[in-house]
Structure formats: C-alpha cells, structure tokens
Design a protein around this nucleic acid. Structure first.
Length: 493
RNA sequence: CGGGGUGUAGCGUAGCCCGGUUAUCGCGCCACAUUUGGGAUGUGGAGGUCGCAAGUUCGAAUCUUGCCACCCCGACCA
C-alpha cells in the first residue's frame, strides 16, 4: 500500500478511482466494463441491501426471482421501452462452443444458433409483465408487490467503478395495481422509501423530484427520483421510481376483472436502486485521507488498536480489549480488535482511516495505568482521551456513532445548500454553472426543445422538478417565455 | 463509438526519439535483528512472456502493422 491519495482539489476523478481501489472496495476485472466488488466493498453493499430489504418488506413487498435472459421478441412489445434500451443490450445468439478445426482453441459452433436470440436483461419489466399475465385475473390478485435483487447488463461505452459499469447489481420492484391512484401512490411511496434510506442510513441529503419527459424512463408515464450532490458539485441520480400507467399491461395483455365484472388493464410501477449508491456514498463524504463511512452502514464501526511492547503488555491490553468487545457487541456495535503484530500502530491508523472506520480506540500501557483510552473520530480526525470511570464504554461509543452519523449528514446538507443557487438570467446561469457548479434553481418554459438547447450549450440537464417546487411566476432563463416554477439544473454523473 | 494519451516485477516508474552486454529506481514482498502512542531501521534475498500478436532486422522494451486494456475529452446512460 503506497502512501497518499491524490487530492480531491487537484483531480477529483483520479481521487475517486484511487480511493475505490485503495480502500479495497472494487477493481476493474478482466472483462471490459465489469468490476470485481471486493469483500470490503461488498460488505458495505450487504449493509445497504439489508436495510433496503427490510424497508421493502415493511411496506408490504416480497422478493422473487426472474430469469437473466429475455426473449428478443419481449423487448419490442413496448415501443418506447425497446427504443430506450436497444442500443445497450448484450445478446446471446448461440448455446454451444466447439474445438476449432485448426486447434487454435474453442469457437462458437455455428450449428448451435438459437432460434430466437436472448437478451441479457437490462431491466426486467418485459419478462416480469409476461409472467404477471398468468398471475393476475381478478382484483383479488391485486395489488401484486414484488421485488427482486439481481444483476443487469447495459452495454455502456464508458464505464467507471460503481457509477457506471456494464454489469451492475440492483434491486427492481415491480408492482401491479387495480387503480391509477393506487399505482401513483406506490410510486410516491417508493421514492420516499429511497429518500429515507439515503438520508437516514447513507447520511446523504437528497432532493425528491420528478423527471422531465426527456429524462423519463423508457416506457414510463412518470418518473420520480432522488437526486444527490457530490463534493465536486455534480449531481447523481440515486434512485428512480416509475409510474408505468397501463403501458406494460397493454403490451403484455395483463387484464383483471374488477368488482363490477368489467375487464381492465392493470396499472404498474417499477423502482430501483443500484450499486451506484456505493459511488454516491463514497463521493459524498470521503476526504483526502480516504473513505468516510456513515456508522449505520460501516461494516466495522469500531476498531481497537493495541499499542504495546512485548507479549506481556499485549496480554494485558487484550484482556481490556476483550471486555470492550463483549460490551460493544452486546449493544450491537461491530468491532474489530486488530492485534496483528505484522503492522505497527501508525500503519494501522492510516489503514483504518483509508477504509473509513468511524471510530478507533487505541489502548496502550499508559491507558491501562490511567484507566483511559484514546478515541479517534474518522469524520473530524479528532482524538480525545476518554476516562473509563466517567461512563460505560459502550454508551460513549453509541453516542459518538450517533454524533458522527448526524455530523456527516449535516456537512453534506450544508454543502448542498451552499451549492444550490437561484439564478434569474442566462448570463448568471452560465457564470454559476462554470465557476461554482452545484444545483441551479431556475425558471424553464417547460419545453423539451429548451431543455435540449440548454444541455447542448452548457452540458447541464434538468435533474428534476422538485416535489416541493418553488411555485412562482417567472420567465424562462433561456427563452424568456413564461414559467410557473423553478426546476433544478446541474451537470450530472 | 469519435479525438487525445498511456501500457516495463504486486504498485508506481527510468530507458523508447537515435535498435546492440546481465532492463533502472522507489514502494511492497521474504529472512534475520533491533523496533511498536501517527504509515520504523539495518543487513541479506526473491520477483520480469517489457500489454498481446504478427512483421522488419544478425539483433527489438526501442522501428512497422493489427488487436486488447486503462485514463482524459465528447456522444449514450442507473
């Protein structure tokens, strides 16, 4: 492990890439565009999964699993859906290899061509709705509230660890309802679940909003989203929840008999978050010393580092450390005692900072003598000597973990507020975007043409029309046409 | 996929323009000793298909062609 991460201020991209690799989160694989999520990175994803899964179940959803492959014909049943995904699909055309005649290795057996090609799912609406047709006959079968944890493939041209990979892990919820209102309510509910997860667990403040028609999911009538801001001022779409109307029900002929006996198409939603959340988590809080993890998602919340000379001292310290470990585990805190003799304390300090462990407790002979320990916070890098006689260690640790969780949220919130600017003229728009970055709250005339034009001119897109939109009469920042409310613009990941 | 750049030990690199002994240095790794409250020090040691494949040449890390991967900038996107 070499010293020193690149500085955020010098090269944000490089800092991000290096951090992901050096903190042992993920690395590029031998397969183009696909990453290996390493054990430490995966354990953070597992924490996220566990919380999200719990929240999905609390809102009445159950998990299921659908096939990785989708018959090509399914994809084309919903016109705008196929249009949106066709350009980035991996396709399976054969089912067998054979040895090459010239002995140069294996080749695809031309005899083994599939009658119908299979698409590796870029998302599962089509295969799921084709299944729902069989599951739904009556209003009694509704609502159908299903989620799946899966991998999907979108053949991206330019990939970045966690933020955009050709294969990624995610969850996709797919629900079916008897009424339009109920489906809309579900769409809103799941956006709120995502927002709550982001804010409460990831310590990541998000803007809840609605996508414009241009940015909407292919096949949806309405797309709700949560948008977060990264430390370089760019926006990151952290989750989306789509109201599908009756689009997929019509495409796959999914009808139900209502109470009055009339047949109608069912109403659908779909919603997802992906391993991209890992990217958001990393970029939102970390610093030039490495990762900063919110305690609620940190695989290791506390690390205990002994400082000793000789076996006798280590034994005395270990006895103390084991007391702490027992007490901490009893209250649900995850602890690691790093008594490896192969690395020195200073090395360990740097290592756990790089990995974002929220709290570090150092115990040395001096502490044993004084009845103290040294507690260091990752978020502020501050250290204090804690007198063990003042309160139980587990109480102290729980308090500090809470404190860290709320401090990093506040810091991210304050950053976002400072980097959200209301602008009223085109000159101001360009100036703020170029020099300050962040979110720009501005009036827009509501047309796709203007949105496109602004994107062409500045690379900024409308991130969302916030749910709590500031409604006021104004004029479009580009065209001067009338507008009834402000929308959020930003350069985005 | 278009423009630019890079690829030499696990990581970071020198050498390449101008072909010629045993491919440079640092970190890391292994052994031993001394060390341990912020990334230890010394001594000794191991580790290389010079991205891959063809070609030019008596001779290729170095020149030519093709391919692959990664990084930056565009287009596309969770």
């Amino acid at each position: 492990m070499s010293k020193g991460l690149p500085k955020r201020s010098e090269d944000y991209s490089l800092w991000y890439n290096e951090l992901v690799k050096r903190a042992d989160l993920a690395e590029n694989s031998a397969v183009r565009g696909c990453m290996v999520i390493k054990p430490y990175g995966y354990s953070i994803w597992e924490k996220m999964q566990a919380e999200l899964d719990r929240m999905f179940k609390e809102t009445g959803h159950t998990n299921a699993y659908f096939p990785l492959f989708i018959p090509k014909s399914f994809l084309s049943k919903e016109a705008s859906h196929v249009e949106g995904f066709a350009k980035e699909c991996a396709v399976v055309t054969h089912y067998r290899l054979k040895n090459a005649d010239d002995g140069s290795g294996v080749i695809v057996d031309p005899e083994a061509k599939l009658e119908e090609e299979l698409i590796v799912r870029p998302t599962s609406e089509t295969v799921i709705w084709s299944t729902y047709k069989n599951w739904i006959q009556s209003y009694r079968d509704l609502p159908l509230l299903v989620n799946q944890w899966a991998n999907v493939v979108r053949w991206e041209m330019r990939t970045r660890l966690f933020l955009r990979t050709a294969e990624f892990l995610w969850q996709e919820g797919h629900t079916a309802h008897a009424t339009r209102e109920e489906a809309i309510q579900e769409t809103e509910q799941m956006m709120n679940v995502y927002a709550q997860f982001a804010e409460e667990f990831m310590a990541l403040p998000v803007v809840r909003g609605r996508k414009t028609a241009n940015e909407r999911f292919a096949g949806a009538e309405d797309t709700l989203c949560i948008e977060a801001m990264m430390q370089d001022g760019k926006a990151l779409q952290a989750g989306t929840s789509h109201f599908l109307g009756q689009n997929f029900a019509k495409a796959f002929d999914v009808k139900f008999a209502a109470k009055d006996g009339k047949l109608d198409f069912v109403w659908g939603t779909s919603w997802g978050v992906s391993t991209r959340l890992m990217g958001a988590l990393i970029m939102a809080h970390s610093d030039d010393n490495g990762l900063v993890l919110p305690p609620k998602l940190a695989p290791i919340q506390v690390v205990i580092v002994p400082i000793y000379r000789g076996e006798e001292e280590l034994n005395a310290i270990s006895a103390k450390a084991n007391e702490f470990i027992k007490a901490l585990r009893r209250v649900g805190v995850s602890v690691r005692f790093d008594d490896r003799d192969t690395h020195k304390p200073g090395w360990k300090f740097a290592e756990y900072e790089l990995k974002g462990v929220p709290l570090r407790i150092a115990i040395g002979p001096r502490d044993l003598e004084n009845g103290t320990v040294e507690i260091a916070r990752r978020d502020t890098l501050s250290k204090e000597t804690f007198d063990l006689s003042t309160q139980p260690i587990e109480q102290k640790v729980l308090d500090m973990l809470d404190e860290i969780q709320s401090t990093i949220y506040s810091k991210a919130f304050q950053f976002r507020e400072e980097h959200t600017t209301e602008v009223n003229s085109w000159e101001e728009f360009k100036e703020v975007l170029e020099n300050k970055g962040g979110f720009i709250s501005a009036h827009w005339d509501g047309t796709g043409e203007t949105e496109e034009k602004i994107k062409e001119l500045t690379k900024a897109t409308i991130r969302c029309i916030p749910i709590n939109q500031k409604l006021e009469e104004g004029t479009c920042v580009l065209t001067g046409k009338p507008s009834s409310g402000r929308v959020l613009f930003a350069k985005a990941y």
